[in-house]
């Protein structure tokens, strides 16, 4: 029983990380109808920035805030410089550009920081809590993620900028007519997604250790989370992330060998896409012929 609670709680913690990355994917998908395949690699790179800041002696939380800000600016710049020119190009071009980004981030990280695996400090106490059911880091991750989710919710619900971004994503033409600068809203969306990804990266790095390939598996789970919850629904993505996190732990402990975890995520993705492409909470995509 203890083992079960333990697995569920640590599943919720990793699930919170998948939820963050899935949320980043959903934010970009909402605005541009495409999936940013480089999201994981961008998060990985942000984590390296945080790592370097901590290495030179910056206190953890200051490094955290700085990294989130730098990632936001980086995300905005990527949208403006690299994604903008192919905005109206066919899907294949989007995919190729995103894969190009993925490869470049991975290579530059390897080039600057080498491929040696690095330890990443956790800001939370590592000692087990609640009679060994959960580690301090897990609880911290859950806390940070939920604070971030609430902030995002308040931002999109109550601030003029957040509302303008939603308008730009839902109906670009009308948004433009009421004076919203749609292009910049997309860029800010990219910035926010990069910042959310950075938080996910920093939270997962103490568990997975830092190396340039750290996020490829996490991205796969985030895909599964986003699709399970419905890629058009931010709340769904978060719930999907938690489900996938818990499922990963339970299935990996009780049902199949842990070598098949990624295959399980792949199977989940295929099943969702084939059986219920809109996910649990997503809107049905209606296509005009």
């Amino acid at each position: 029983m203890t083992q079960l609670t333990q697995q569920i709680l640590s599943g919720v913690a990793t699930g919170a990380i998948y939820a963050s990355l899935a949320l980043a994917l959903v934010m970009i998908h909402q605005a541009t109808e495409s999936v940013n395949f480089a999201q994981g690699e961008m998060a990985m790179f942000s984590t390296y920035i945080a790592w370097s800041l901590v290495q030179v002696g910056t206190p953890f939380w200051i490094a955290f805030v700085l990294t989130v800000v730098i990632s936001f600016i980086g995300g905005v710049l990527i949208e403006r410089i690299i994604v903008r020119p192919v905005e109206n190009a066919p899907v294949l071009s989007h995919v190729i550009v995103f894969i190009g980004l993925l490869v470049i981030f991975s290579a530059v990280a390897g080039w600057i920081f080498t491929y040696t695996v690095k330890q990443f400090p956790s800001p939370f106490p590592t000692k087990p809590l609640l009679g060994g059911a959960v580690t301090g880091h897990d609880l911290g991750v859950i806390g940070v993620t939920f604070v971030m989710l609430i902030l995002l919710f308040l931002f999109f619900r109550f601030t003029p900028l957040g509302l303008a971004m939603r308008a730009a994503a839902q109906n670009p033409e009308s948004a433009r007519l009421v004076g919203i600068r749609v292009g910049w809203m997309l860029a800010i969306g990219w910035g926010l997604a990069a910042a959310v990804g950075a938080v996910a990266g920093i939270m997962v790095a103490p568990i997975l250790f830092l190396d340039p390939h750290m996020m490829s598996g996490v991205l796969l789970y985030a895909f599964a989370a986003a699709l399970l919850g419905g890629i058009s629904s931010p709340g769904g993505a978060v719930l999907g992330g938690l489900i996938v996190g818990v499922l990963e732990n339970l299935v990996g402990t009780y049902l199949i060998a842990s070598e098949l975890k990624l295959t399980m995520a792949l199977a989940l993705i295929i099943i969702v896409l084939v059986v219920k492409p809109s996910g649990l909470f997503g809107a049905h995509a209606v296509k005009r012929v």
Binding site: V91, A265, L266
Partner: peptide, 28 residues
Amino acid sequence: LPALRLENLYLALVTLSMAVATPQFLKY
């Protein structure tokens, strides 16, 4: 066969996931 039902973007996503999962699968 399942790919028939997927739009371009999702097919890209599924195939990328397949590529990520391949080494683990082979090791198993």
